[in-house]
């Protein structure tokens, strides 16, 4: 299935580097998948692709078929199962056994390179050609509902080519291009760059689905005290000034980093409060420490303290898209 047939395309943008575009893209994709939507991720950060690392598919390679490039499958769909305990695989001990999710696939330049430390030293025209090729000749799984596009920092070649190609390809059905999620961190230095990105969206007519304030505070794993390492609240003020929706603040969660880097299922000390909501208990599945780290990224992600925050964001994005679809794409 080609780009024209994907119902919803969402861009993840930020003027500033290192604010967590890839992290937000990954978590939006996992959340969408857990809500039963089949997702594809396209990583157009050509000189610093991180998506393969986030999804734990660094050793995978994309393949070329007769129809075009085939993305890597991160996980297949797993339909909801009736909760009938079967004696053989003892579902009560694996907390994720009753979780259902839809397929997630991804494509990135990092999945083409022969070595993970090879520098891709490309000038604009070559990057443009690669972005076009990824957009126009990738064969997405036929059930793909959402395409998330992770971008490099800035407002340059990749972004111009991306928008040009997307606008051309979706000219017949402009509602396909749902809009952009803009990621920032709370500091003034990041905000001033991200304001430029909002200006970019305005100039290119790209809808802003909302602003995510990432790295808003760090919850100390020793005492569960939240420290605002990069200050706080800047993202919300910026969203208000620019009159775009504010999707929420996401704290730094070391357990999420450990999940990505080491595949550890997140556990938290007692009394950890994230986003003003409930504390995630550590001991709920404490007995089966041996099997706790087994399972797919998407299954383990449900134990992450910031997953409920992303659920909220995805719900408001989906509502926004739905409303727009109902109003005929305006």
């Amino acid at each position: 299935m080609s780009l024209q047939q994907i119902p919803h395309i969402i861009l993840v943008l930020s003027g500033k580097g290192g604010v967590g575009k890839s992290s937000v893209t990954t978590q939006l994709a996992l959340t969408l998948s857990l809500q039963g939507h089949s997702v594809g991720i396209l990583d157009v950060d050509l000189t610093g692709p991180s998506i393969p690392r986030f999804l734990g598919v660094e050793s995978a390679k994309i393949t070329q078929s007769a129809g075009g490039l085939l993305p890597v499958t991160v996980h297949e769909a797993k339909p909801a199962q009736p909760t009938v305990p079967t004696s053989s695989d003892n579902p009560s001990t694996t907390p994720s056994s009753n979780i259902s999710y839809a397929r997630l696939s991804a494509i990135s330049l990092g999945l083409v390179l022969s070595s993970r430390s090879t520098a891709v030293i490309w000038r604009g025209p070559k990057k443009t050609a690669m972005v076009r090729q990824f957009l126009t000749s990738t064969v997405w799984p036929s059930d793909t509902e959402y395409l998330l596009i992770d971008t490099p920092p800035g407002t340059s070649d990749e972004h111009i080519s991306l928008l040009e190609t997307l606008l051309k390809e979706t000219a017949a059905t402009p509602a396909q291009l749902s809009g952009a999620v803009v990621v920032t961190t709370p500091q003034a230095v990041a905000i001033s760059d991200v304001k430029k990105e909002l200006d970019f969206c305005r100039k290119t007519g790209l809808r802003v689905l909302g602003v995510v304030e990432n790295m808003a505070g760090f919850v100390c794993p020793h005492c569960s005290e939240c420290t605002n390492v990069f200050s706080k609240g800047g993202g919300e003020i910026m969203a208000r000034e620019a009159v775009v929706p504010f999707l929420g603040s996401v704290p730094i969660d070391p357990a999420f980093v450990a999940l990505i880097e080491e595949g550890k299922r997140p556990v938290y000390p007692k009394g950890t409060v994230v986003g003003g909501t409930e504390a995630q208990e550590a001991e709920g599945n404490g007995e089966d420490a041996g099997t706790r780290d087994d399972g797919l990224l998407v299954e383990k992600y449900t134990s992450c303290s910031i997953y409920p925050l992303f659920e909220g964001m995805v719900n408001s994005i989906l509502k926004d898209i739905e409303e727009r679809d109902r109003n005929g794409g305006t």
Partner: peptide
């Protein structure tokens, strides 16, 4: 590849000391 000598590397954001409990933790492990 570009022939630029490397003076060296700095590790930034290396560890964080909680102002509340002074426990040190690695935000970016």
């Amino acid at each position: 590849k570009a022939g630029i000598p490397i003076i060296g590397i700095v590790e930034n954001m290396s560890g964080f000391v909680c102002p509340n409990c002074t426990g040190e933790s690695q935000i970016f492990r």
